[in-house]
Design a protein around this nucleic acid. Structure first.
Length: 739
DNA sequence: ACCTGAAATATTTTT
DNA sequence: TATTTCAGGT
């Protein structure tokens, strides 16, 4: 290890890294180098002989973060530390479950369900219980079950409620638990829950890990939920904990993360040494000031103020667009300009609140010929064809997996219809056996029509043959065989269009992935397969397969931007209703979370930040008039630079049917101070006059204050009696002249 | 089994 | 608007 490795750190970081070996909470602001502190701390502990790598447990939320941390630690140590436990909560719990499967009441071959599998199981249960799917929406039930599990509650332990609705939910949960148990399947939350129970029921095992892991480090602590917190508490009780987090960047409350856990630390791990990292190495002074001012509007913060030695940098640009097309056009224009100045596309990020916003921006980028990549969406192991193949692979290991059975039996179609399938389902429900077993019974006792019986028989044969004949193959050959003999390849060959071809390519890719996986794995092939399947569930792979472009603009939601940084950032759709989202507007705590999300967005920017909003946006097929986001108003107005657009030629001849008519023909960008109102056209426009009294269908009555632009995109500024002053596109807003 | 058209229904996402 | 799901027909 380089002796001077602490010299790479600033004084606050150094202080945190070499803090006394006692419980420590590091409050690390955005861009203050928290991962760096965490990795250096691990190296420091080892180097100074406080412990060996064997004694360290480091926990993260994503595989990406875990991999990155391991890499950085090994780099600092100068050797590969395999007995260092670094991983995600789920990954580490999975590891524990594989070791202690018997004590955790699991089958040796237990498998992990992803959320898609989980949803299918729930659907089946709802149907089997004779409940109406319209009323008992599987997604909501899934939500309910996971929320309970994240709180560490089994169905039997959920407080008994008075209302029938919740009682039914609990009984579905109970059914679900039993079904999963019978199938030897665990969902993600179950990994944590089982570990909790293992520790409760087998104190010796807990003690074993307590004495092993003398130093525990947790990243992104603000994102922990109840069960994760308890897990840490159990393991770290007699040991030393370092938690790193930022309450201002807590954006996962909606899926159970508890910001309060940060405060709970002070209680449960008292005395705790609090270290603050407030020097930011990422953004300019103006960007930081904006972020600080915004987040100051949130109550109950632990308190933190970011500062930088950097200069103020440029102001934050604000662009009020006519509509979403104009917004996209503007962003593309800026990126083009930026690229011309010898910059890379890779340095530009377009961030938005919800995925639907990406489409219009994508189209504008395509039209401009700018390469881009969208993050989020379908991952490799979540693709339909991949899940089909995985279904067969799962059946080889565990034919009692009903989810896999249901999937495989009719993909590709095998002439076993809904009728016959229902008989199998009834039969298995009645006897509490798996579908596979009830299929065996049916064949034995010739319970179905001859034709179906034949089909079923050959399906059973197929699985049994695969089970036996693949024992001596390599994992990739096995996968190859399964894909071929299941008929998936020929099934997808018949699919029309390019889709089938892509699917087959993906299936080939699965074979390659299996080959790569088994390279580092010397177990027998079925053990390898079990691990491969677990890996597929826990690490669903990249969102997009490799694309040829190496320099591209990056598009993603604000949530997925956390932890990243870009020189040039656009926050698009800064509108009330969109951001903060309509569904979060009424609840103060949700609104605070939206604000934190905005804080996350702003602090992604290193050099330049653009905020854009559209005055008109088509949303769910309806034209919507949104006000600019309250978050814009919460920023220091002197830091904002409003970009105004001026049309040079008035030519009111655009029709919306014309394909390129989203934008006025000639335009130039001009900058004015924010809030400065400029009449660019004249005293009169489209029959409107200054001072005229008008009525808007939603905003009510108001007075015309100003005009801007011309033609289809001409806008009027109206001071409404009830909702304040707004700029409206005259041709969209259905303004009625009153006087 | 597959096609078609109507109807419902639209945050954020990791594991 | 766009996507997904479902009923009904072939």
């Amino acid at each position: 290890m380089p002796k001077d490795y602490l010299d790479q750190l600033n004084s606050a970081q150094k202080k945190a890294v070499s803090a006394p070996v006692e419980n420590t909470l590091v409050l690390a602001g955005a861009g203050s180098g928290k991962t760096r502190v965490l990795t250096h701390r691990i190296a420091w502990l080892i180097q100074n002989g406080f412990c060996s790598p064997f004694n360290i447990l480091a926990v993260t939320f994503t595989n990406k973060a875990a991999n990155e941390m391991r890499g950085r630690v090994e780099q600092l140590l100068g050797y590969s530390a395999q007995n260092l436990w670094i991983g995600t909560f789920h990954g580490l719990c999975h590891r524990l479950m594989r070791i202690h499967y018997d004590k955790a009441n699991l089958n040796e071959n237990f498998q992990i369900m992803d959320s898609d599998d989980q949803l299918r199981v729930i659907k089946r249960i709802v149907t089997a219980m004779g409940l109406d799917e319209k009323q008992w929406i599987p997604k909501k039930i899934q939500w309910f079950i996971n929320a309970k599990k994240d709180d560490g509650l089994r169905a039997a332990k959920v407080p008994n409620p008075a209302d029938l609705h919740t009682r039914t939910l609990i009984s579905i949960y109970q059914q679900y638990e039993e079904t999963c148990f019978r199938m030897h399947l665990v969902d993600f939350a179950e990994l944590l829950l089982r570990t909790q129970e293992l520790f409760e029921r087998h104190p010796d095992i807990l003690e074993h890990y307590q004495s092993r892991f003398t130093y525990i480090l947790v990243d992104e602590f603000q994102d922990t939920n109840a069960i994760q917190y308890n897990w840490i508490k159990a393991l770290a009780k007699k040991n030393t904990l370092m938690a790193v987090g930022d309450d201002d960047q807590s954006i996962y409350g909606w899926r159970g993360a508890k910001i309060e856990n940060m405060k709970a630390l002070e209680r449960d791990f008292h005395p705790i040494n609090i270290q603050r990292l407030e020097q930011n190495y990422r953004s300019t002074g103006n960007i930081l000031k904006a972020a600080n001012t915004l987040i100051a509007n949130n109550p109950d913060r632990l308190g933190k103020n970011l500062w930088t030695e950097d200069g103020l940098g440029e102001k934050i640009s604000l662009y009020p667009a006519f509509n979403e097309f104009d917004e996209a056009r503007f962003i593309v224009e800026c990126i083009r300009e930026y690229y011309k100045q010898q910059h890379q596309y890779l340095h530009c990020a377009i961030l938005y609140r919800s995925n639907t916003q990406s489409r219009v921006i994508e189209e504008a980028l395509i039209q401009a010929g700018i390469p881009y990549r969208i993050y989020g969406g379908l991952r490799f192991f979540e693709r339909q064809e991949i899940k089909d193949a995985l279904g067969y692979l799962k059946l080889i290991l565990n034919p009692d997996d009903d989810t896999a059975f249901e999937r495989a039996i009719n993909t590709p179609p095998r002439g076993i219809g809904e009728q016959s399938l229902n008989q199998l389902r009834d039969n298995s429900k009645e006897k509490t056996i798996s579908l596979w077993q009830s299929a065996l019974h049916c064949v034995e006792q010739k319970k179905l029509s001859n034709r179906v019986l034949n089909n079923l028989q050959s399906f059973i044969q197929l699985i049994q043959t695969l089970q036996q004949e693949t024992k001596d193959l390599s994992l990739s050959n096995l996968t190859d065989q399964v894909i071929l003999r299941s008929g998936l390849i020929s099934h997808y060959q018949n699919e029309k269009g390019e889709k089938g071809q892509t699917r087959i390519e993906n299936l080939q890719e699965l074979i390659t992935a299996a080959g790569q996986f088994s390279e580092e794995n010397k177990n027998n092939v079925h053990t390898q397969l079990a691990e491969f399947l677990a890996n597929a569930a826990l690490e669903a792979g990249e969102t997009q397969s490799d694309e040829s472009a190496i320099d591209y603009v990056q598009l993603m939601t604000l949530h997925s931007a956390k932890g990243l940084e870009f020189p040039l950032v656009f926050l698009a759709g800064m509108e009330e209703g969109l951001f903060p989202h309509q569904l979060s507007a009424s609840d103060p705590s949700q609104l605070s979370e939206e604000r934190r999300l905005c804080y996350v967005g702003i602090t992604r920017a290193m050099k330049k930040l653009y905020l854009t909003y559209a005055e008109t946006r088509r949303h769910h097929g309806q034209e919507m008039y949104h006000r600019p986001s309250r978050f814009i108003h919460e920023l220091p107005q002197e830091l904002l630079d409003e970009v105004r657009l001026r049309t040079k030629i008035s030519k009111p001849l655009y029709t919306s049917s014309h394909k390129t008519s989203h934008y006025p023909p000639t335009m130039s960008l001009r900058t004015t101070n924010y809030r400065q109102q400029t009449a660019l056209v004249s005293q009169e426009l489209n029959g409107f006059r200054l001072g005229q009294l008008v009525k808007h269908p939603t905003f009510g009555e108001g007075t015309i204050l100003n005009f801007e632009g011309s033609g289809e995109y001409a806008r009027v500024q109206v001071k409404f009696k009830q909702v304040g002053t707004k700029w409206l596109v005259a041709s969209y807003a259905k303004l009625e002249v009153i006087s």
